[in-house]
Design a protein around this nucleic acid. Sequence first.
DNA 1: TCTGGATGAGACATAGGTGTATCATCTCGG
DNA 2: CCGAGATGATACACCTATGTCTCATCCAGA
Lengths: 190, 190
Amino acid sequence: MPATTHPKNAPRFDRTAAAILDAAAHVFSEQGTAASLADVAAAAGVSRATLYRYYPNREALLSALGAHALTELANRLNDAGLERATVTDAIERLARALVAVGDRYAVLTSDQCTPDKADAERLLSAPMRAVFQRGIASGHLRPDLTADVQQQLFAGTIMAAIKLTQRHQLGPEEASAAAAAVFLDGARPR
Amino acid sequence: MPATTHPKNAPRFDRTAAAILDAAAHVFSEQGTAASLADVAAAAGVSRATLYRYYPNREALLSALGAHALTELANRLNDAGLERATVTDAIERLARALVAVGDRYAVLTSDQCTPDKADAERLLSAPMRAVFQRGIASGHLRPDLTADVQQQLFAGTIMAAIKLTQRHQLGPEEASAAAAAVFLDGARPR
DNA sequence: TCTGGATGAGACATAGGTGTATCATCTCGG
DNA sequence: CCGAGATGATACACCTATGTCTCATCCAGA
């Protein structure tokens, strides 16, 4: 029973909850997480009172949104089978997954609004770090830079790719491919 | 007469103005541009009333800060002599300049607070774009990605480098070097 | 030393967001 | 068809930040 979609026949409660969450993702990614909850409610086609019935305060909404983003991303990373793939492949899949999810949740990374920091570490940071560490150990990634540093630089490239998609300069596919290509091989032709 | 430093013998007016601007850069880069002006005043060692005497409202302060960042960056880019250098050298100098200035003004990029968009274009975007366009034309940069796209990806790498310095994981020198190295040659060893 | 400009402290009105509560209305499922 | 739960509209108190104003004080330069 996939909970990722929002079927019409789902209980009304779940549907409005999801609608609010979607609206929050949309509004926050455009105006920043400081946007008024009134705007979120309006974007969800719901009164302000209803929003507060589902999420008693801003923190709860932000936290729920973070949890939603986290599980969606974790699912994609699971499906990607990072540990069974080449380091190169793993990084390309990582790029695809992060860009696909990130264009709606990128704002959440700047504000520390992770529902549970341990979950984020376990579901995101750890698998990613594993890829970079494996890459360095196997000689597929440069040994002169820490796994952590390379991960940060990769993240920066991904954020740029997300911006490119948000400005409609590139589709998600091309953007993630460009990011992975430049990160792996550089902007200089071989 | 370099205006970049704040000499003790400068008129008191200029000194406090600069102190407020410095404090604003510091506070905003830590708490985001939505931080309270009371916090900025406190960080500047100045009363709230005084801050308002110098900058009548938040927008004026933000605008002045943007102008300050812009001129500082423009000076560095001028000194870098980008057009007289190799594309590779130009990119490395670009990285150094952006990281050196950016760790205090990075916040300003997310919020559109540029004093004058035309100035930003003329002083920053244009020189940078020139480097990337020249690189593609001369075969020093990959031809399969637009100059604009490569510039965005480079910017993302720079933002990551700035974060690395802010977290004290790397010094500004190492961070900009790492960013330039990965951007130019990729994370994969040759 | 004297004085004018700069400052700090604080009061003040305003605006906007937040979270709570109430009540009438709607709507969907049994 | 009917009723319980969901919703919308609205009012409310509260808080925080903003921008303005006044007045006493301070300090540097003439």
